[in-house]
């Protein structure tokens, strides 16, 4: 266990770096996923097509392919940014497709009558979505979207491996390959770091679900 105790500060800074990626990733993919889900249920056909295409293409590509495209493909067509930005953008876009589908499950669970009643009192499409449908859809979407966010936290390791650097996974990698520490204790430390994010996330989601539960 020396590998962990001797490098505690490294692990801690890696943890914080990963946590930052995950927080921005969660915020970004929740917002983007909501926008894409809105497109998929919009009354305008081109928006629906756009939303469906987004989900179909991105959900069916491996995360590594999406990240390589961002990190090495975009510079080829003249779009340049650092690895951190590319990595985070790739993670957000990849996760948004899954958030969208989780949200859509929630939207579909809201009875059509709720939206009809909203339209019948004169609310516009956007108003009935934001006032009536989405608040109820979010409740039902907490379990599936929560799973997506937890998967995203773990996927952040892939982003780290792609050269963002100094995140939890990269710390583990450099300790084992460059400094020659034994893999098992180091990776145990890395795993504990990820559990320190995913377990509270899971507990938080459970609490949130109980708090917003409502009788129908």
């Amino acid at each position: 266990m020396d590998a962990i105790t001797q490098n505690l500060d490294l692990f801690w800074s890696g943890f914080l770096r990963s946590l930052t990626i995950c927080l921005w990733g969660a915020v970004g993919s929740l917002i983007l996923g909501t926008i894409i889900a809105t497109c998929r249920v919009a009354p305008v056909a081109p928006l629906r097509t756009f939303g469906t295409a987004w989900v179909t293409v991105i959900r069916n590509c491996p995360l590594t392919v999406v990240l390589v495209m961002f990190a090495f493909g975009l510079p080829e067509i003249g779009i340049n940014a650092d690895f951190y930005t590319f990595g985070l953008a790739g993670l957000i876009i990849y996760t948004s497709a899954f958030v969208c589908e989780g949200l859509r499950a929630g939207i579909n669970s809201v009875s059509a009558g709720q939206a009809e009643a909203a339209r019948a009192i004169g609310l516009t499409f956007t108003q009935s979505l934001t006032q009536i449908v989405l608040p109820q859809a979010f409740r039902t979407s907490i379990p599936p979207v929560g799973s997506v966010i937890i998967a995203m936290i773990k996927n952040s390791a892939v982003v780290g491996a792609f050269g963002v650097g100094r995140d939890l996974f990269s710390v583990g990698e450099s300790l084992t390959s460059a400094q020659g520490y034994a893999a098992l204790p180091v990776l145990t430390g890395v795993a504990i770091g990820y559990l320190m994010m995913t377990l509270p996330a899971g507990l938080g989601l459970g609490a949130l679900e109980r708090r917003v539960a409502i009788a129908r």
Binding site: S111, G113, Q114, E116, A117, A118, R119, A120, I121, G122, L123, T124, Q131, I132, P135, Q136, R139, I214, A215, R216
Partner: peptide
């Protein structure tokens, strides 16, 4: 939407907004 606001509608299955209180249901519009 504007025209619908002038036409009141009462449904067979009530369709009250499930996540809003009775008063909020009446004041939302």
């Amino acid at each position: 939407a504007k025209l619908r606001a002038d036409v009141g509608m009462v449904f067979q299955s009530f369709n009250l907004f499930a996540h809003k209180t009775i008063r909020e249901n009446v004041t939302l519009g």
